[in-house]
Design a protein around this nucleic acid. Structure first.
Length: 359
DNA sequence: AACCGACTCAACCGCGGACGA
DNA sequence: ATCGTCCGCGGTTGAGTCGGT
């Protein structure tokens, strides 16, 4: 333990340890640590009311509050900021956290953006507590209907594997779906929302390249969020996110995608698929995928027939009612749809890709 | 009442990115 | 290009509380 590391207690004071830019300040500044008092809260709140947030290191200089900038920022953002919710997470919030964790891993700050009034710290504490409990009880981290989006097929949803979700995105080799999206080439003339950076991504051989591609995709998806006014939740997964945006766009232009009755699939999943498979966004996405000649060369030779022997891609929008129903269904299953999208694409694309590559 | 372990949650720490000099 | 500072993030700690014995 260094001479500066004094065991902490309520109101412990320590020499200024962070800025080091002001000797005078350092000489006379003795910074408190530990729990905040009501008086300190009032000083900080008053400061923010008058000066706004930011420049936290100035707080102690301007107010005489014996707290470092970091401590002030934390106290403000976790306790004093208006509109913060207090108390236990309700059922809806709990479920949201679980869903978000399945999507993002330990991205507490990002998760907090999706849960108004909740802080990253609260969410982190909730998740860690929950994880402990479920481990102890021998329960899986995620309920059956929530799958971690990344590594669906590779890692088990096991109770003793609490950390892998946060670390998988950088290390895993690309899946067929990843490759599909990375190689996804849109026709410039036909698609007004053509995105050059996606079009140009073809090399996924190095993780460094892939990281850089992801960064670019992320930027693209941010742009699309603005264009399509989609919720920020998608930002965690740029490819799916982008696909959704794209799908939503195309869904307004194209007839609904056919039912997947005749797609090879696990029967136990049938109900799950049935409820989401024809949602407009997925529909549009799949349509856009299937009609890309660069991916599937014989786009005219439509690969699937429906149970009724029709090709609904050729139907007019006569089933507008059904589309509307599916729209509401999709909204209800909004989050589930995101996980299902990847499953769906695997289910649809893989047999077809296999068929083409083996012939 | 006293003890003790489990639990919660506020707060701290170290690190890395952004930015300006 | 380098350095220093600020800020935000995720991981960790530990004081206080609760519940069981």
């Amino acid at each position: 333990m260094s001479p500066l590391q004094i065991p902490l207690g309520s109101g412990t004071v320590l020499p200024h340890a962070e800025s080091g830019d002001d000797d005078e300040l350092l000489e006379k500044s003795i910074l408190r640590k530990g729990p905040w008092t009501a008086e300190e809260d009032e000083i900080l709140a008053d400061y923010v009311r008058n000066n706004g947030t930011g420049n936290w290191n100035a707080v102690s200089k301007r107010t005489g509050l014996a707290r470092c900038g970091k401590s002030c920022r934390l106290r403000w953002s976790n306790h004093l900021k208006p509109d913060l919710k207090k108390g236990a997470f309700n059922a809806e919030e709990q479920r949201k956290v679980i869903q978000l964790h399945a999507l993002m891993g330990n991205k507490w700050a990002k998760m907090a953006q999706e849960l108004p009034g909740r802080t990253d710290n609260e969410i982190k504490n909730f998740w860690n507590t929950r994880t402990k409990k479920r481990k102890r009880a021998g329960l899986p981290l995620y309920p059956d209907d929530i799958k971690p989006l990344l590594n669906i097929d590779k890692k088990e949803n096991s109770a003793d594997d609490s950390t892998h979700q946060a670390n998988v995105s950088q290390n895993d080799s690309p899946t067929i779906l990843d490759s599909l999206f990375i190689d996804y080439k849109l026709g410039k003339e036909e698609h007004s929302s053509y995105i050059p950076s996606i079009l140009d991504i073809t090399d996924i051989n190095t993780s460094e390249q892939q990281d850089s591609d992801y960064k670019q995709l992320h930027q693209d998806s941010d742009m699309l969020h603005k264009s399509f006014n989609l919720p920020g939740i998608h930002s965690a997964y740029p490819k799916v996110d982008w696909a959704f945006s794209r799908g939503l766009f195309l869904a307004s232009e194209l007839p609904p995608f056919p039912s997947f009755d005749d797609i090879q699939r696990d029967d136990s999943q049938a109900e799950h698929y049935e409820s989401i498979i024809l949602s407009p966004s997925t529909s549009g996405l799949l349509k856009s995928v299937f009609y890309q000649p660069n991916i599937l060369e014989d786009s005219c030779n439509y690969p699937f027939e429906t149970q009724r022997g029709q090709n609904p891609a050729m139907k007019e929008n006569s089933n507008q009612k059904e589309l509307t129903r599916l729209d509401s269904c999709w909204l209800e299953n909004y989050d589930k749809d995101q996980y299902a999208l990847k499953d769906t694409l695997f289910a649809v694309i893989e047999p077809y890709v296999n068929r083409n590559t083996s012939s």
